[in-house]
Amino acid sequence: MRTPDFSKLKAVFVNCTLKKSPTQSHTDGLMQVSKNIMEKEGVAIKHIRFVDHDVAYGIYPDMTEHGANTDEWPKIFKTIFDADILIIGTPIWLGEKSSVAQKLIERLYSMSGKTNDKGQYLFYGKVGGCVITGNEDGVKHCAMGILYALQHIGYSIPPQADCGWIGEVGPGPSYLDDESNAKTNSFTNRNTTFMTYNLMHLAYMLKENNGYSAYGNSRERWDEGNRWNFENPEYR
């Protein structure tokens, strides 16, 4: 079996912890497992702790044009968009992804009306996944919302594109605490490894093929009147 060459890929990990640097983030601990694998495979890695940046709330690409005093989103977006792979990490709070993760998704959505050079929506050809940590139930629920949002705006989601770790319900040790034994959890380690490789495989395939064909999915061509094989249904 030929070993794929992932060295031309770029990935960005966006940690949506509520804790500003340099406070320890357990979510970052699990994200590091995936980062280590990618780095060993030659992938260029960047990391963003979203809460460290002054990102405005809003639904436009640059909120300083809509009343915000400052907005670091345009600069952050360049880093995210430059990557072939986006991994969103979040803790679980009250069974949900963090408010910081929701804010990131809203700002990603603010860019989704833009198109690429094929006239497709901007995120076509890019790949997404997520990492979840916490001390309560909700890994699959949080992943479901994040992955739905990513595919809705154009990201491609490979098989098993999420991983996570949760401790016992209630107060207790978190991922990086030694007493949790999380680093030796076979289920989490396997899922994190599979997620990481599946993200790289799909990103590699899309990059090698210059993304998706624009046949049947170009907003630009639709607006010009091209309907491919679509016909208005006839009701009787």
Rank of each mutant, 00 (worst) to 15 (best):
P158R: 12
G138D: 10
G154P: 03
G145M: 01
P158T: 11
V131P: 01
P159G: 06
G129T: 03
K118M: 15
I157L: 00
C130W: 13
G154C: 05
H141C: 08
H152K: 04
I105H: 02
I157Y: 00
I105E: 05
Y148T: 04
E96S: 08
G113C: 15
E106A: 09
N116F: 13
I132M: 13
I157D: 00
I105K: 05
A143C: 00
G113S: 15
G154Q: 05
G95P: 13
L108I: 09
F123T: 07
Q120S: 04
G95A: 10
Q102I: 08
I132V: 15
E136R: 15
G145C: 01
T133M: 06
K126Y: 10
G134N: 03
V127G: 03
Q102C: 10
S112H: 10
I105S: 03
I153V: 11
Q151L: 01
G134L: 01
G128S: 00
A161D: 04
M111Q: 14
P158C: 13
K97Q: 14
G134V: 00
S98T: 10
T133L: 07
S99A: 09
I105N: 04
D162Q: 03
Q151A: 03
I153D: 04
N135G: 14
A149P: 06
I153A: 04
V100W: 01
S110E: 12
G154F: 07
S110V: 12
A101D: 02
Q151C: 02
T133A: 06
K126G: 05
I105P: 06
G145I: 02
G145R: 05
L108K: 05
M111Y: 13
V127T: 08
D117G: 08
L108R: 04
F123C: 10
L147T: 00
G154L: 06
K118A: 15
G119F: 02
M144I: 01
K97W: 10
C130L: 09
A143N: 01
A149C: 07
E136Q: 15
H141A: 11
S110M: 08
G134A: 02
L104K: 09
G138N: 13
G129E: 05
E96M: 04
I146F: 11
Q102Y: 13
G138F: 12
Q102V: 09
C130G: 12
D162E: 07
F123S: 10
N135D: 09
A143M: 03
K97E: 14
L150T: 00
D137W: 15
Y109C: 05
D137S: 15
V139T: 06
I132W: 12
K97A: 13
Y124I: 01
P159D: 11
L108W: 09
K97F: 12
D117W: 11
G125H: 12
V131H: 04
A149D: 14
G125F: 11
E136V: 15
K140V: 08
R107D: 07
P158F: 13
H141I: 11
L108P: 08
G134I: 00
R107H: 12
I132T: 13
M144E: 07
Q102L: 11
G154H: 08
G125K: 11
S112T: 04
I105Y: 03
N116W: 11
V131Q: 02
V100T: 00
P158E: 12
A101N: 02
Y148E: 09
K140Y: 07
I146C: 11
D117Q: 13
D137P: 15
G119N: 14
